[in-house]
């Protein structure tokens, strides 16, 4: 199969970008989308052009490095997978595929399809942790956690920090990302001592980074490669209100 790619090219953060069209060499439908880009890059390199820069690492859907908006959808056409788990058999021979970087003001483009997601680290540094010194921990079984709470915390903790939720949201809201971390710790007894402080600080960092507000469109949940639920956003809203009322 062959496809035509319309890819966003941008030399650096300061320079303007534009779409370029490339016709791919012959492809195997069992290639992953990123392997297809590898092939295109090999071809570009051989022809003396600069290859397309794109983010990727583990290529098994867990590191959260890969991004890309494929035909308008972060991580491509399927639910519950990352771009690296998207395969060319999801497209048809002769298709035109539009490939763009994540678009959000807090995620500036670094080059071509690569964006900076430092804003997420900033939010995590504001409170995405439990303050426990190494060596100070009590025995692991001294603190029982009800299985349903542990399971729900794990559902939230599955977030890979890829930023697709922000990319999909028409408001570039980071609520799903923030809610996942806030919920994980709010559900666990270990997270209680810093419960109010954490949510207040993380929301503040989120706002300072310039993410938009949640208007409950559900786009984030629909593109999340780990199927993180909107319910966690409701929980974040609840946690924040609780923290305000308690004067956290």
């Amino acid at each position: 199969m062959k496809v035509r790619l319309k890819i966003w090219r941008q030399p650096n953060a300061a320079a303007p970008g534009r779409f370029e069209t490339y016709d791919t060499p012959d492809l195997n439908p069992n290639m992953s989308f990123l392997e297809m880009l590898d092939v295109v890059n090999e071809d570009l390199t051989a022809r003396g052009q600069e290859p397309v820069a794109f983010d990727h690492d583990c290529r098994e859907g867990i590191c959260g490095t890969c991004s890309l908006v494929i035909n308008g959808k972060p991580h491509g056409p399927h639910r519950g997978v990352a771009t690296c788990q998207t395969y060319m058999r999801s497209f048809k021979d002769g298709d035109t595929i539009v490939v763009e970087p994540f678009r959000a003001r807090p995620f500036p483009v670094i080059k071509d399809l690569i964006v900076s997601r430092k804003a997420f680290d900033k939010i995590m540094q504001a409170g995405g942790f439990i303050s426990v010194r190494t060596g100070a921990a009590p025995d692991a079984n001294s603190l029982p956690v009800p299985k349903p709470a542990a399971d729900e915390a794990m559902d939230a903790a599955a977030c890979i920090g890829c930023g697709a939720c922000v990319a999909a949201c028409k408001n570039a809201s980071a609520m799903l990302f923030v809610s996942a971390k806030v919920s994980q710790f709010a559900l666990l007894p270990q997270g209680q001592p810093e419960r109010e402080r954490r949510v207040l600080r993380m929301v503040q960092a989120m706002d300072e980074a310039g993410f938009g507000a949640c208007t409950v469109t559900g786009s984030c949940e629909a593109v999340c490669p780990k199927n993180i639920s909107l319910d966690f956003i409701a929980r974040l809203n609840r946690e924040y209100a609780r923290a305000l009322l308690k004067g956290g």
Partner: peptide, 29 residues
């Protein structure tokens, strides 16, 4: 206020379409 801020947060629309998973009502509030 929120609409203005939200638009500032997402200055560029996607060439390839978008609004995946969002109902028409939610997008036109």
């Amino acid at each position: 206020l929120l609409t203005l801020e939200n638009r500032r947060a997402r200055p560029l629309a996607y060439e390839g379409g978008g609004a995946y998973g969002a109902s028409l009502a939610s997008r036109t509030m």
